[in-house]
């Protein structure tokens, strides 16, 4: 197990180095010129040359890359051309809203996936309709689910809010930045309920697609496990169906679904970026979308690096969890 952990951690370091190399290479080829953006188009030749030297843009590429990685390790993601603040500070401002939405979406996706898989495997009544609904939903882009949700549940029915994280102007802003958690910490159940209402539409919009992918994998491993001899034995010795499912079937079917969940996180990130734009969600998606039209590459690269690191770490943890749960998996 220790060897496995060491191997995986080495792989993580190598992959992250590759990611930084990709981002660095992209920055080199980027069409946006940092000097021009900073000094304006009318800057004199001398001033441009001086600024280039100051920023070390005339150094050899290898030296620039080494400096880039050193800065990253120290948490320095560069300066945004647009906000003129440190990208790391910008990200710290926008991260909590995105984190809350992404976590809510992930939990929703897993719950939907389990319901989908169990209902269709055990042929619960209504499972067919539920399945059809999810399958059609998974073919729709997240942005269609989001705007469709707004038209139906906000404009027509008036059940759910359409923009932002909360209607409370005095909603707590600390200590975690996750509104639902902060509301609990400050003992404000009304704010918690309101925050959950605001999370529901964007969360569902990003959850449906991944839910179907995870649910399909879970379903096929459930079907396989249900056919095993030990499941038959468990039934034959008179265990109640609920116990059979909980102790023998679900537990042994969870592995592949867990892997799929890790992989779906990448797609979910893209969903979050898109959905934030629609719901005026004050997170990294807004930040990215505002950075794209003005070619603010440091800002975009900073967000993408963060998402890339999160993705790699999540999938490594998933791998290790699986190895811990199933001794048959080895390095």
């Amino acid at each position: 197990m220790l060897i496995l952990v060491a191997k995986r951690l080495t792989a993580v370091v190598l992959i992250l180095l590759a990611l930084t190399a990709v981002l660095f290479a992209l920055e080199q080829t980027s069409t946006s010129d940092p000097i021009k953006t900073m000094l304006g188009p009318g800057a004199s030749q001398a001033l441009v040359a001086q600024k280039r030297a100051e920023l070390g843009l005339d150094d050899p590429i290898a030296a620039q890359y080494a400096r880039y990685v050193t800065d990253l390790v120290h948490g320095d993601l560069g300066t945004s051309y647009r906000t003129r603040r440190a990208v790391s500070a910008d990200i710290a401002t926008f991260l909590p809203a995105t984190l809350e939405l992404a976590l809510f979406g992930l939990v929703t996706a897993v719950l939907l996936a389990v319901a989908f898989a169990v209902a269709t495997t055990l042929r619960w009544p209504g499972a067919g309709a539920f399945r059809l609904l999810l399958m059609v939903g998974a073919s729709a882009p997240a942005f269609l689910l989001a705007i469709g949700g707004i038209v139906v549940f906000y404009r027509e029915l008036g059940w759910l809010p359409a923009t932002g994280r909360t209607d409370f102007v005095d909603a707590p802003t600390g200590p975690t930045g996750l509104l639902t958690v902060d509301a609990l910490v400050h003992g404000r159940p009304a704010v918690l309920g309101d925050a959950l209402q605001h999370l529901l539409l964007p969360g569902l919009a990003i959850a449906v697609g991944p839910a179907v992918s995870i649910g399909r994998v879970l379903r096929s491993s459930l079907v396989t496990t249900l056919r095993t001899d030990y499941t038959r034995t468990a039934r034959a010795k008179g265990l109640r169906e609920v116990e059979v499912m909980r102790k023998h079937v679900l537990r042994n079917s969870i592995g592949p679904a867990l892997s799929m969940t890790g992989l779906q996180v990448g797609l979910m990130f893209a969903g979050v970026l898109v959905v934030e734009l629609i719901f005026a969600w004050p997170g990294l998606g807004q930040y990215t979308a505002q950075s794209i039209p003005v070619d603010d590459f440091p800002a975009i690269a900073g967000v993408m690096l963060l998402l890339g690191v999160a993705y790699v770490l999540i999938n490594t943890v998933v791998d290790l969890l699986q190895a811990a749960a199933d001794p048959r998996i080895e390095a």
Binding site: V22, G266, A270, M304, G308, Y311, V312
Partner: peptide
């Protein structure tokens, strides 16, 4: 690496 993120 997450494909959509790298593509962006």
């Amino acid at each position: 690496l997450p494909a959509p993120v790298v593509a962006i």
